[in-house]
Structures are given as C-alpha cells and as structure tokens.
Computed example of a mutant assay.
Amino acid sequence: MKNRLAILFAASLLTVSSSAFGAPKAARSSADLILRVRNLFETWQALDPEKAAPFYAKDADLAFFDIAPLKYTGWTEYGEGVKKAFADFASLKLTVGNDLRATQRGNVAWTTATWQGQLFRKDGGNMAVEGRWTGVWEKRGKEWLLVHEHMSMPLPPPPAGQSLYTRLGGYDALAAVTDDFIGRLLGDKGLSRFFMGVGNDSRKRIRQLVVDQLCEATGGPCFYIGRTMKAAHQGLGITENDWKAAVDHLVATLEKFKVPQKEKDEVLAAISGLKADIITSAGSGGK
C-alpha cells in the first residue's frame, strides 16, 4: 500500500510540474516570438535591409515572397532588391495588427499577422497600404531566424464584368507587351537617348515597374511602388513629339499582339492620363 501511495504521489507531482512549468515555458516562447515580430516590423521602418538582416537566416536557397517582385531567393538577393524598391521613399510607418499570432513546434515556428503601412515618398507624396504577412522561423542557437517570409496584399474590389487586365490576357500578356514596347523605345534613335547610361539592373527595374504599373492600372493583382510619373520623368526634357513617338510604338506593340480595338482604346485612354506629368519640355524633341 505504501508503495502504491508513493507512486501515486510521484505521479501527482509530475502532473503538477508539467502543468505548472511546461505551459508557461510555451507561453514565454510565443511571447518571445511575438515580440520579435514587432521588433522586425519596427526595424523595417528604417528602410534599411542591413538593420533587418539579423532577423533572417542567410541560407542561399531560402525563398522570400514579397509584394513586388514575386520572389527573392536568399537574403542577399532579398536585401539588394528591397533596397532598390525603397529607393524612392523617405520613410515608412508600419503597424502590426492585433491578430498577430505565433505557433511553435520544437525548433520551428510560424507567425501570422495583418498590417497597415504608410509610405512617404522623397518627392513629397505618400501612399497608404495594408496587407498580410506570414513568417516561418527556425531556432538557431539562442535566436529565432526567419527561413521563409510571405508578404502580400489583398486584391482590389472586382470591377463589374471582366477587368481590362483579364481581357488583355493577364500578367504574362502584359509582361510580353512591356518587353516589346521597351524594345521599340530602345531601338528608336530619337527616344533611346533617355536610356543612355542606364545599366542592365536599372533597365530590369524599369521593366518591372512598367509591368506592375500596367497590371495595377488595368485592374490586376499588382501594386506599383515606383515614383510618381512627374517625379520619374522630371528633368528628362520629354517633348510632345517624344510622347507621340512613344504612343505610336505602344500602338504598334498592341497591334502586334492583336489586342482588340476596344481594349486598345482603353489602354490608350489610361496612358493619356499620364501625359501631363511625362511631358517636361516644350521643345520639338528628337524627331
């Protein structure tokens, strides 16, 4: 009987110890992760990838999904890409939603949250944004490091009927149009001067920004984070003739891809709204 009582007493102690010490430890881990996420978002407000680097694992093959572009592979590519994306902004304010959650399974954990932000441009403009975020963490030594991150934004409300984006063929179609259009601009002796001194990396960035802008403007699931048209073209000396030549190239591109007249007119109407911000000179231009 004494042995049985001793065993029951020991079992009771184990049960109490498990509930008293195990749960608070898990709770502390979750609290630590939540604090780390808040510190991560606060750090990104400086728009400096080097300050955010300590939160990320440095494995070369890790995938990080961003709003734009679609994906970065490895922290090095991520840090360099984000630095370019933030180049036109002076500051950023980020607020993590109250729905921030952390779940841990051993040395792996995942965190989820919605967020709101406000980007302030160097040219004086600003933009309000909101989205959702998922982070996958791994405990390495004493620190939790991000091994995967997914930042995304909700789609805009669907328009009545099919969007222009859908009718044009979606993202791949717009990317093909952009590639052909930029190729025509580069091949035009009168317009190629605007690309003089622009390196391959900068051309790729310009190409991506054009795709994102077309995608967003036509109702697609993209978000343009570049400068305003006025700021981007200021000082280039673009004339009315330059504008007309560029529009002619765009029309030729749309015709090459057999874009129907209705959709072609809608694209040109959307582009025409940018004219006042792009033409910066009253001269005759290169033609």
Results as ranks from 00 to 15, higher is better:
Lys2Glu: 05
Arg4Thr: 04
Ala10Ile: 11
Ala11Gln: 00
Ser12Arg: 05
Leu13Asn: 05
Leu13Ala: 05
Thr15Ile: 14
Ser17Thr: 09
Ala20Met: 13
Pro24Gly: 10
Pro24Met: 04
Asp32Gln: 15
Leu33Thr: 15
Leu35Glu: 13
Arg36Asp: 09
Val37Ser: 12
Ala46Asp: 01
Leu47Thr: 00
Tyr56Arg: 07
Lys58Ile: 01
Lys58Tyr: 04
Lys58Met: 14
Asp59Ile: 04
Asp61Gln: 09
Leu62Tyr: 04
Ala63Glu: 09
Ala63Asp: 13
Phe64Asn: 04
Phe64Ser: 03
Phe65Gly: 05
Asp66Ala: 10
Ile67Cys: 03
Leu70Val: 11
Tyr72Cys: 10
Tyr72Ser: 11
Tyr72Thr: 07
Trp75Gln: 00
Trp75Tyr: 05
Glu77Trp: 09
Lys84Leu: 14
Ala85Pro: 01
Ala90His: 01
Ser91Asp: 12
Val96Lys: 01
Asn98Glu: 15
Asn98Cys: 00
Asn98Phe: 01
Asp99His: 06
Asp99Leu: 02
Arg105Ile: 00
Arg105Gln: 13
Gly106Arg: 12
Asn107Ser: 08
Ala109Pro: 08
Ala109Leu: 01
Thr111Asn: 11
Thr112Pro: 08
Gln116Val: 14
Gly117Glu: 11
Gln118Cys: 07
Leu119Gln: 02
Phe120Leu: 09
Arg121Gln: 14
Lys122His: 11
Gly125Lys: 11
Asn126Phe: 10
Asn126Pro: 04
Ala128Asn: 13
Glu130Arg: 15
Glu130Cys: 05
Trp133Lys: 07
Trp133Ile: 08
Thr134Gln: 06
Gly135Val: 03
Trp137Cys: 00
Glu138Cys: 06
Lys139Tyr: 02
Gly141Cys: 12
Trp144Gly: 04
Trp144Val: 09
His150Lys: 12
Ser152Arg: 12
Ser152Met: 11
Met153Thr: 10
Pro154Ser: 00
Gly161Lys: 08
Gln162Glu: 15
Thr166Gly: 05
Leu168Trp: 03
Gly170Val: 05
Asp172Gly: 07
Ala173Pro: 03
Ala173Ile: 07
Ile182Asn: 03
Gly183Phe: 13
Leu186Arg: 15
Lys189Trp: 11
Lys189Thr: 15
Arg193Ala: 10
Phe194Leu: 00
Gly197Gln: 06
Gly199Phe: 10
Asn200Met: 11
Asn200Leu: 13
Lys204Phe: 07
Gln208Val: 02
Leu209Phe: 14
Asp212Phe: 06
Leu214Phe: 15
Cys215Ser: 06
Lys230Leu: 13
Ala231Val: 07
Gln234Asp: 03
Thr239Ala: 07
Trp243His: 05
Lys244Asp: 10
Ala245Phe: 05
Ala245Ser: 14
Ala246Gly: 06
Ala246Ile: 06
Val247Pro: 10
Asp248Tyr: 08
Asp248Val: 14
Leu254Lys: 09
Glu255Gln: 15
Phe257Gln: 14
Gln261Pro: 01
Glu263Val: 01
Glu263His: 05
Asp265Cys: 04
Glu266Val: 06
Val267Phe: 01
Leu268Cys: 02
Ala269Ile: 08
Leu274Ile: 03
Lys275Tyr: 04
Ile279Thr: 05
Thr280Pro: 03
Thr280Tyr: 12
Ser281Arg: 06
Ala282Trp: 08
Ala282Leu: 11
Gly283Asp: 15
Gly283Trp: 02
Gly285Lys: 03
Gly285Ala: 15
Gly286Asp: 09
